[in-house]
Design a protein around this nucleic acid. Structure first.
Lengths: 209, 209
DNA sequence: ATTTTTATCCCGGAAAGCCCGTATTCATGA
DNA sequence: TCATGAATACGGGCTTTCCGGGATAAAAAT
């Protein structure tokens, strides 16, 4: 394998340490930087950029899919591979639209990760076998992605925090009827008829933690 | 450190491989077995038992907190340390009641894990600093465990499946008012006032996946 | 430049959920 | 055995959500 400098972003030090030890046994691979948060990453990249970045999505603070647009814009030559447990269409689509080159699940083994690294170095995209079906669907544009507006996400969050529409309205200074309209749109977008199953479905789809 | 044989149960091969490489750099530590599922674990333990078992909770198939009672009964001399992201009281309590000796979060670093291993080898319990407050609360018996009846769990499940009280009533042949009574008890037990946040809380507490 | 879409906001009425009761059954242990 | 509590079941009354409308302004597409 050609010489490659790799960066790792993950909030699990145990995983970083393990991954580092593992990857460095391969000649040509060098782990140049590891970061435990988005903040650390952004600071570190100003100093030096790796060729390939392994990026977890679930990070405390700024999440991977919030970071991705920034990375794509500021460091377009850095190949980013998502290394995560999130296998929801929502994230795969979001990340791909922002220049992600590879997607590897943490449940995969070493050979998959190495294959992904080699692929993106050649400029090709790489998807974990376990998510190829979803990735193909997403890339073909067949999916009609459920996209929530900022306001809808905000309402959804407050709904899970045990607030009624009236309480939400008071909190964010809009009419109660408007909150109910947002609720209706949430129900329609996720294809359910009760707020209870809305929450379940949103969690299942990865729209919220 | 004294000689110790360690087993690891986790469905992330990357983490296992990394952890193994990391721990084996310490003299006296030997990783004798690694398992990717509860099934593999139970089969493997029949052949040989490690001194310390690092057990993830979120496993596909049988989860760690389902395995724990079995392990405690069949292999009481094996010291089990939970190595997981789950930091909910529900799990900590459940696991501790079934003989768990240590609880380490995956967001911790190497030294915490080593400290946990050393502690349990001496027969003491060890908790990750990040969860000591919760652990103390659980051990002191202050918490009153939320216990749902079979009927309540059944209703809760149907609520998340997008059914109204009337539909649930029709499905299981009871009066709509009775369903609403169960709903009320669910709300009271979990300390919320809407079904939407009930679902969120139930998931957070691990009462359902 | 003008259509089309999207996000946000508002109303009225029907449906469902929430909260106060009470009743019956059943298991437990004083 | 009889008291206690817990689980299940049901009713009335009030609140909230749900769902049919529709309006407006901003952004995107043509």
């Amino acid at each position: 394998m050609m010489n490659v400098r790799i960066g790792i972003v993950d909030d699990h030090p145990l995983l970083i340490k393990g991954l580092k030890g593992m990857l460095e046994q391969h000649s040509g691979i060098e782990i140049t930087d590891t970061y435990q948060s988005g903040k650390e990453l952004l600071a570190g990249l100003k100093v030096a950029q790796p060729d390939v970045l392994l990026l977890d999505i679930q990070l405390q603070g700024q999440s991977g899919d919030e970071l991705m647009p920034l990375l794509n814009k500021q460091y377009p030559n850095m190949m980013v591979i998502a290394l995560t447990n999130m296998e929801h269409e929502y994230y795969i689509k979001n990340m791909l639209q922002n220049g992600l080159m590879g997607y590897v699940l943490k449940t995969s083994n070493e050979s998959v990760l190495l294959a992904a690294i080699q692929a993106v170095l050649k400029g090709s995209k790489y998807f974990d076998p376990a998510i190829r079906k979803i990735a193909a669907k997403v890339q073909s544009g067949i999916t009609q992605q459920v996209l929530l507006t900022a306001r809808e996400k905000e309402i959804l969050q407050l709904i899970t925090e045990d607030l009624t529409s009236q309480e939400i309205a008071d909190r964010i200074f809009i009419n109660k009827k408007t909150v109910e309209a947002h609720r209706l749109h949430l129900l329609q977008k996720l294809g359910v008829k009760t707020s209870a199953s809305l929450v379940k479905k949103a969690i299942d789809m990865g729209l919220m933690k």
